[in-house]
Simulated scan of single mutants.
Amino acid sequence: MSKVWFITGANRGFGYEIARAALDSGDRVVATARRPQEAEAALKEHGERVLALPLDVTDTDSVVAAVAAARERFGRIDVLVNNAGYGQLGYFEEQSPQSVERQFATNVFGVFDVTRAVLPVMRAQRSGHVITVSSLSGIIGIAGSPVYGATKFAVTGWSEGLGRELAPFGIHATCVHPGMFRTDFLDPTSVGHADVEIDDYAPFRAEQRAYLEASNHTQPGDPAKFGPAIVRLAALGTPPERWAAGSDALASFTQRSRELADSATEWEELSRSTDIPQD
């Protein structure tokens, strides 16, 4: 039986590539976006198997309405892809409280609200798969993007715990960690930068901006291959809790696992010293 996908941010980037791959595999897709007309135009060749809907993940009413429309049209939701989000880059002290709140509202609380709306459908089915797009920055903290990384670490831990809660209902959860892919993530229309300038950070800020500009559209990851990989994940009977997308993300997995093991060994005595002695 074909699956029904509910994808946020489906009008471009990863969301579009996942939608296209799912449709190419014969599945049906609810393509949601703040500008659904873009998703509808890009996927129109697939006809009635596509339902393009307006959805702003920071607007609870639009989330609830989109999930209701999806269920009315297709009767079920088999795969939720939490993809919508953006990068708020810059040094922590150079980001205003308002910009930090906006970043969390989209990348964390928006993910929570969409998932909260979809889960009753999946529980009723006793099946489903929640796929959440995190980041390489959700594996290793990176200077120059700690707020963005904080949102991605947040959804990573949330996804892992959520998956264990949902397992009794036959629902899986996978957190996807993409590395650097050649999308529009670093374009001015997508990325946000620090909105406060502090002189001490000026040289670091300039260096980061130069690096990002040089990296844009030269990244090693191929977004056209990302979509089919997600479709493969969704087809697995036992999907992973976490998956690294790209060789750079895979290297970060390996680096973090070694760092944790080395830290545990180095500080083992101090760690054990806090226990109550056992008789």
Score class of each variant (00 low, 15 high):
Ser2Glu: 14
Val4Trp: 11
Tyr16His: 14
Ala19Lys: 10
Val29Ala: 10
Val30Phe: 02
Arg34Tyr: 01
Arg35Val: 04
Glu38Ser: 13
Ala52Gly: 05
Leu53Ala: 09
Leu55Phe: 06
Asp59Thr: 00
Thr60Asn: 01
Thr60Asp: 11
Asp61Val: 08
Ala66Gln: 01
Ala70Tyr: 03
Arg73Asn: 02
Phe74Gln: 08
Gly75Leu: 03
Gln88Trp: 00
Tyr91Phe: 15
Arg102Tyr: 03
Val108Met: 05
Phe112Arg: 06
Asp113Met: 06
Val118Thr: 05
His129Met: 08
Thr132Met: 05
Gly141Tyr: 03
Gly144Gln: 07
Tyr148Thr: 11
Ala150Ile: 04
Trp158Asn: 01
Leu166Ile: 04
Pro168Asn: 06
Ala173Trp: 04
Val176Arg: 03
Gly179Asp: 07
Asp184Gln: 11
Leu186Met: 12
Asp187His: 14
Thr189Asp: 14
Ser190Asp: 06
Ala202Tyr: 06
Glu207Arg: 14
Arg209Met: 14
Ala210Ile: 09
Ala210His: 07
Ser215Thr: 09
Pro223Cys: 02
Ala229Glu: 13
Ala229Lys: 09
Leu233Trp: 10
Ala234Trp: 01
Leu236Val: 07
Gly237Ser: 10
Gly237Met: 01
Arg242Thr: 15
Trp243Ile: 15
Ser252Gly: 15
Thr265Pro: 00
Thr265Tyr: 01
Glu268Ala: 14
Ser271Phe: 10
Arg272Asp: 13
Asp275Thr: 08
Ile276Tyr: 15
